[in-house]
Design a binder for these strands. Structure first.
Length: 373
DNA sequence: TAGGCCATCTGGTCCT
DNA sequence: AGGACCAGATGGCCTA
C-alpha cells in the first residue's frame, strides 16, 4: 500500500493527531476534576472556581474512559491525585498557551526564537501556584494540629474511639483534668472522687458530662451543668451518692448494676475515702481565673512524664499558665494546700509513694486508672 | 430542618 | 520573598 510520505502530509497528520490528543486530554481532565469534586469535595483545592464541575465537555464523559492510573490515584490518595491534577492543569494551561500563540507572529512571519516575553498570565499562574502551595501547607498544618488534638484525646479521661470528643470539649476537659490533678497533687491525698469529677465536668456540655460521669459509673444526673457552665449537684446528697450503695458492697461502684450510662464505661476503681465530705469549690474554679497565690512561682516539676512541664519558665508563664503553680505544691506546702479542694493530710505529707521523675506516681496512676481502659 | 462540628480555602499579618 | 499562623467564610455531614 502506498503511503504518501511527503513532509507536508506527515506534518499535518502529526498536527491533527496532536490536536486530537489535546482534546482527549482536556476531556479527561475535565471529567476527572468534576468527578473528584463530586466525590471528595472536602479535599479538593478550590483553585479554579470557573472549572468547578462546569459541564463543558467532561460532565458527560463516561467514567470508564478515565485512565486507569488516574482513577486509581483518585481512589487511593486524593491528595496526591490532586497534586497530579494540578500538574495536569499546569500542563493544560501551557498547552492552551501554545495553542493561542500559534507558530507565527502578527505579521504572519515565523516567530523568532529566544526567551519568551513575560506576560501577566505567567504572574497569575505563579501566584496561583503559590496559593496552592500555601493551601497545602495549611492543610498539613491543620492535620498536625488535629493529630496533636487526637493525642490529647487519648490522655484525657474518657477516651473513646467511637464517641470522639469534639475539639472544644477535648480542650476543656484537658484543662479541667490538669486542674483537678493539680488539686490532687497540692492536696497530697487521695482525691475526693465526686469533687474530682465535678472539676472535670466544669464547663463541659451535658453529653460530655454524661460521658465523663459514665466513665466513672456515676449518676450523670448528679452533675448537671447549669446555664453558666457550672456543674450543679442536683441529686441526693453527694455524700450519699458517692458512699452509700444500698444493697451493694462498698466496693461496688455506684450505678454499676443497671446503670443507664455508657455501657462501655471504664472499670471503676474504688478509692478509700478517709475524710469527711468536703465543699466542692473552695478554690477558684478553672473558669474563674487564677487562684489567689501569693507565693513565688516555682519551677514546675516533672511527674513521670505525665506533667512534662518545663523547668525554665516560658516567657509568659505567669500570665498564661496559671495552672503551673499548682503543680509545684510539694509535700508540706500547706500554704497552698490548705486552700485546696483536696486537703493535705494532718501529717502534712503525701499518703502515696510519690517519686519525682521516671518513677511511679501511684496516686496519678490511680486517678488515671479510673478513666482509662 | 436547624444547629453543631468539621475540613478547607483564603487573605491578612507577622516573622525570618 | 516566603513561610507560619490566624480568623473569617463556606459548604458538607450528622444528629436531634
Amino acid at each position: 500500500m502506498e503511503v504518501p510520505w511527503d513532509t507536508e502530509h506527515v506534518v499535518s497528520a502529526a498536527t491533527r493527531q496532536k490536536k486530537l490528543q489535546r482534546r482527549f486530554r482536556r476531556a479527561i481532565w475535565e471529567h476527572a476534576r468534576c468527578t473528584l469534586i463530586r466525590g471528595n469535595m472536602l479535599t479538593l483545592p478550590f483553585e479554579e472556581p470557573h472549572m468547578m464541575c462546569e459541564p463543558r465537555f467532561g460532565a458527560n464523559y463516561p467514567r470508564e474512559n478515565l485512565p486507569e492510573s488516574l482513577e486509581k490515584e483518585r481512589q487511593h490518595d486524593p491528595d496526591r491525585s490532586n497534586s497530579d491534577m494540578r500538574e495536569a492543569e499546569d500542563d493544560i494551561s501551557d498547552r492552551d498557551e501554545d495553542e493561542r500563540e500559534g507558530d507565527h507572529d502578527d505579521n504572519g512571519l515565523p516567530k523568532k526564537r529566544g526567551p519568551r516575553k513575560k506576560r501577566p498570565g505567567k504572574e497569575m499562574d505563579r501566584s496561583k501556584v503559590r496559593r496552592h502551595e500555601a493551601n497545602a501547607r495549611e492543610r498539613t498544618r491543620m492535620h498536625s494540629l488535629n493529630d496533636a488534638l487526637e493525642s490529647l484525646r487519648k490522655v484525657v479521661p474518657c477516651y473513646s474511639k467511637t464517641q470522639k470528643l469534639s475539639k472544644i470539649e477535648t480542650l476543656r476537659l484537658a484543662k479541667n483534668y490538669i486542674w483537678a490533678l493539680s488539686e490532687t497533687l497540692s492536696a497530697g491525698k487521695r482525691p475526693d472522687l465526686l469533687a474530682f469529677v465535678q472539676t472535670l465536668c466544669k464547663g463541659l456540655s451535658q453529653p460530655t458530662t454524661n460521658l465523663v460521669a459514665g466513665c466513672l459509673q456515676l449518676n450523670a444526673r448528679n452533675f448537671l451543668t447549669d446555664h453558666n457552665g457550672e456543674v450543679m449537684f442536683s441529686g441526693r446528697s453527694p455524700y450519699d451518692a458517692m458512699y452509700s450503695y444500698p444493697g451493694t458492697d462498698m466496693n461496688t461502684p455506684p450505678g454499676h448494676s443497671g446503670s443507664n450510662l455508657d455501657s462501655s464505661a471504664k472499670p471503676f476503681r474504688h478509692y478509700s475515702y478517709s475524710g469527711a465530705y468536703e465543699p466542692y469549690y473552695e478554690n477558684p474554679s478553672p473558669e474563674g481565673g487564677s487562684p489567689h497565690f501569693d507565693g513565688q512561682l516555682s519551677p514546675p516539676m516533672n511527674f513521670n512524664g505525665i506533667f512534662s512541664l518545663k523547668h525554665d519558665d516560658p516567657p509568659d508563664y505567669g500570665k498564661s499558665s496559671h495552672y503551673g503553680m499548682r503543680y509545684c505544691s510539694a509535700p508540706g506546702r500547706t500554704a497552698l494546700a490548705h486552700n485546696s479542694m483536696y486537703r493535705v493530710s494532718p501529717e502534712g505529707r503525701f499518703p502515696y509513694d510519690l517519686h519525682v521523675r521516671s518513677q511511679s506516681f501511684q496516686a496519678q496512676g490511680e486517678v488515671n486508672g479510673s478513666f482509662h481502659n
